[in-house]
């Protein structure tokens, strides 16, 4: 007879697993990936594929030869980092620069802390910010959506919508003067604008977000509080001076806000664990984003905002505990 197993209760388990969650996120990113292929053609495909391959390969090599542990690339987290990194760069970025970004993201931001689950900062964002600071020109010359998708041409480049705005305001123009150069909201919603690969189409990102909500991979707390705080903060600014500050809907649709709110800020490892904490985290991200966009030197602030809030996560986890059952309320 076979030996019986003895273990502590419980004896049944949920069928979720880390890899199921991670591959779920990958599936959720498919719409935005397809949109980026559509608008940026071959360049987009090359960037996305090479980012994924680099990330997976680097994680494998680091685990196999540096840490000498069983490689865990099958759990899909490196694939997510690769796709997110690709989402965050322009489609005409030289591949060797992308490789450096991937090395920073995986080897430094993730594996040096102990791998999945132990990194304090979102690896893709660290990689992105590293590239932004190291190669500022290449990282901020955004190709406009291409017309011929199958050829790799020197695409027409131009600033992003946020760049146009920032520059215009810096030159002393008013919002109404600039707005003629800005794309229509409809274009921004669908993704027919210049920008990083994955950030252009709000629609595709929202579809991915809804999928993750349905699969219970994320909860609504971070994306909603992030977007809501951006909307409200920029709305207050807009109400004080509509000629100087652009309207909140623009802020929601422009730049990497949707991407950041739905895919980056919700990364389980680097976000708070309680609902209360998540709302604080999202709100903090939103306020910082608007602050950087409106008053800072960079036109876009989502990456920095999320990274700054990532650093606050341990503090938030400590400060915002769940409500204990049967907690004795003082004075009550």
């Amino acid at each position: 007879m076979n030996l019986l197993t003895v273990s502590g209760s419980p004896h049944v388990f949920n069928d979720t697993s880390v890899s199921k969650i991670m591959w779920g996120v990958v599936i959720a990113m498919i719409p935005a990936t397809l949109v980026s292929f559509w608008y940026f053609g071959l360049g987009g495909i090359i960037i996305t594929l090479s980012a994924v391959i680099f990330c997976v390969l680097i994680e494998y090599l680091v685990q196999r030869y540096l840490l000498k542990e069983a490689p865990s690339v099958k759990d899909g987290s490196a694939v997510i980092t690769g796709i997110l990194l690709a989402f965050n760069v322009p489609s005409n970025l030289p591949v060797w620069e992308l490789l450096i970004g991937c090395i920073v993201a995986i080897a430094i931001a993730k594996m040096s802390f102990g791998g999945l689950g132990k990194n304090p900062f979102n690896p893709a964002l660290i990689g992105r910010v590293f590239m932004l600071i190291s190669f500022p020109v290449d990282m901020t010359s955004w190709p406009l959506p291409v017309t011929n998708r199958m050829v790799l041409t020197d695409a027409v480049t131009g600033p992003t919508t946020l760049g146009i705005l920032k520059e215009g305001l810096a030159n002393g123009e008013t919002v109404s003067q600039i707005s003629s150069q800005l794309p229509a909201y409809q274009q921004m919603f669908m993704g027919d604008i210049g920008g990083s690969l994955g950030e252009v189409s709000a629609l595709a990102l929202i579809i991915g977000g809804l999928f993750m909500l349905y699969k219970k991979i994320i909860t609504w707390h971070i994306p909603v509080s992030f977007m809501l705080s951006v909307f409200m903060f920029s709305g207050i600014l807009y109400l004080t001076d509509p000629e100087h500050y652009i309207d909140p809907v623009f802020h929601l649709l422009a730049g990497g806000l949707m991407l950041g709110a739905i895919f980056m800020a919700t990364d389980m490892v680097t976000s708070p664990m309680t609902y209360k904490g998540m709302i604080i985290f999202g709100t903090g991200c939103g306020i910082l984003t608007v602050l950087i966009r409106v008053f800072g030197a960079y036109p876009e602030g989502v990456s920095f905002a999320i990274l700054i809030m990532n650093a606050c996560v341990p503090l938030i986890n400590r400060g915002f505990k769940p409500k204990r059952f049967g907690e004795v309320v003082k004075n009550g």
Binding site: L3, L4, T5, V6, S7, G8
Partner: peptide
């Protein structure tokens, strides 16, 4: 010889409280 198989936290104190031993 083993009569049962134990699975769980690798802690003698925990196993001691759980059962008599493999």
């Amino acid at each position: 010889p083993k009569k049962v198989i134990f699975e769980g936290a690798t802690s003698c104190v925990f196993a001691h409280n759980l059962f008599a031993g493999e």
